[in-house]
């Protein structure tokens, strides 16, 4: 993707230290970055914080963005790394525990909790490709750019992650 004239100017201004210009660059990417962080961290406030941290890191590293390269996969890569750092914190796993199931819980809620629990049992990289593919709705080509790998490798990682997810996802005892 080539940047338009305005984007080139915004990048130049952002590199010169203009925070408003960098915010404008991020505006179209914010929602997808938030969804990625939410899918990885399972908490809206944590996700907002992670995107915020990632934005500042991205701003500092804006000089590393190759001319003509697309901002989105580059920024999402930084968001994913930020989420990995957050989830390394020892107590994060305790904070992210879902409520115990009760008889009154709806099937939808139970299914959502089941998927979240299953995802927590996967490694960060497996979670990342699943969230990029099935929640951020990225095509394999874009997943590949975000992860810095080939499209074939991206497809293969997603397939492996689905294979790992399958046996641990169940709905009220019945395997899917």
């Amino acid at each position: 993707m080539q940047f338009g004239h305005d984007e080139v100017e915004l990048i130049r201004d952002a590199k010169a230290g203009d925070g408003g210009a960098f915010a404008e660059l991020l505006r179209p990417e914010y929602d997808v970055a938030f969804r990625l962080a939410l899918g990885l961290l399972h908490d809206a406030n944590e996700a907002e914080d992670a995107v915020q941290e990632a934005a500042f890191k991205a701003w500092r590293r804006l000089g590393n963005l190759r001319e003509g390269a697309s901002l989105r996969p580059w920024f999402l890569g930084i968001v994913a790394n930020q989420c990995r750092d957050v989830s390394r914190s020892a107590w994060w796993s305790v904070l992210k525990v879902d409520p115990p199931e009760t008889a009154a819980m709806t099937a939808d809620l139970a299914e959502a909790i089941d998927l979240r629990r299953a995802l927590r049992r996967l490694g960060h990289d497996e979670r990342l490709v699943l969230v990029l593919r099935y929640y951020v709705d990225m095509p394999f080509e874009e997943i590949a750019t975000t992860l810095g790998i080939s499209t074939k490798a991206a497809r293969s990682r997603v397939e492996r992650a689905v294979h790992r997810l399958r046996p641990i996802v169940h709905v009220q005892g019945a395997a899917v």
Binding site: G20, A23, Y30, F34, R35, V131, Y134
Partner: peptide, 23 residues
């Protein structure tokens, strides 16, 4: 299943907070 489990909009004013901090 992913969309059902995670469908949640960013907290209100989240982007504006980021924008303000960046500025």
């Amino acid at each position: 299943r992913f969309h059902a489990a995670f469908e949640e909009a960013p907290p209100r004013g989240a982007f504006e907070r980021l924008q303000s901090d960046l500025i």
